[in-house]
Design a protein around this nucleic acid. Structure first.
Lengths: 146, 146
DNA sequence: GCAATATGCTTGACTATTCAAGTAGTTATC
DNA sequence: GATAACTACTTGAATAGTCAAGCATATTGC
């Protein structure tokens, strides 16, 4: 049939690769009781200024909607992994902050995540990985890890 | 904090980029009444031998489970975009085949998809895209488009 | 040739997420 | 300083998908 142009192929292949990788990362993180989404949330919180973020900003950062973040965070709050903090001047916003238990889990799971990732990509030269990262950084914008 | 190794960064960034791209592609395809998943299914069917696939194989190819493919296909069958075909010697399998209406939609939507993709990736040299594709091809395996 | 096992598919119950609407609080305008 | 418009967050209903179980058919090993 019509042959597919390279940009479309790239998008379809990013999609396919993401599906494969997400399954593997979820499996690797399951022993810590978290998903890749949870992990990403913890990581973004740990990188944020004062280690806290407004819920809308966190949602944006991890690619969810405001309501999505409410639902994902709710069990994490109940488990005591993150907690709420009020904004001093705006009563509408509630910050999300990593609780000590959440930090602990992040530190443990980051080890698993890094070694799984290294294993999954073991066959690639690190220069290639760095370069690939640069491209994705521009595509993913704000949501990427620099 | 602990700095993150490059393989993990790459995986997180593929994840982020995929989220961004999927939203844009879904928006571009919405005018044809299909999602990126539907589009991928149509495309894989059109590339398949005799333009038909067993449901399990299609599921595998597009990164869904067998039950997932049943649910996604069911409305597409009702709309007459794909149809079932029996296997001559194995009564368990039912092939999925693009119906003429499905082919028409694929041909129309492939135009939108290609031009959106080209636009989204307009700032990248095509050699870079080709190279990136090679890497993803190895990560995504069977599920990628060669 | 028949029991055991494996395969292909569907279905009910669940999970993750979205969207639309609602509530509460804030900012701007006149 | 009242009102309108906007923003942050939550919630009910819906959608896309998973997982576990079940049914029908095929294959294998005795």
């Amino acid at each position: 049939m019509t042959s597919i142009n390279d940009p479309l192929k790239l998008i379809l292949n990013i999609n396919a690769a993401q599906g494969v990788l997400q399954k593997k990362m979820d499996a690797a993180l399951a022993s810590h009781g978290i998903t890749l989404t949870d992990f990403t949330i913890f990581l973004q919180l740990s990188l944020a200024n004062e280690e806290k973020m407004r819920r809308v900003d966190l949602a944006e950062k991890v690619g969810l909607t405001a309501s999505g973040i409410t639902r994902v965070l709710s069990p994490l709050e109940k488990l005591g992994l993150v907690r709420r903090e009020a904004h001093s001047r705006d009563a509408r916003v509630s910050y999300v902050k990593l609780a000590p238990a959440g930090k602990r889990i992040l530190n443990e799971s980051i080890q698993s995540a890094q070694s799984s990732a290294a294993e999954l990509l073991a066959t690639y030269r690190s220069t290639k990985i760095t370069e690939l990262n640069k491209v994705l950084f521009r595509i993913g914008g704000e949501n990427t890890i620099p």
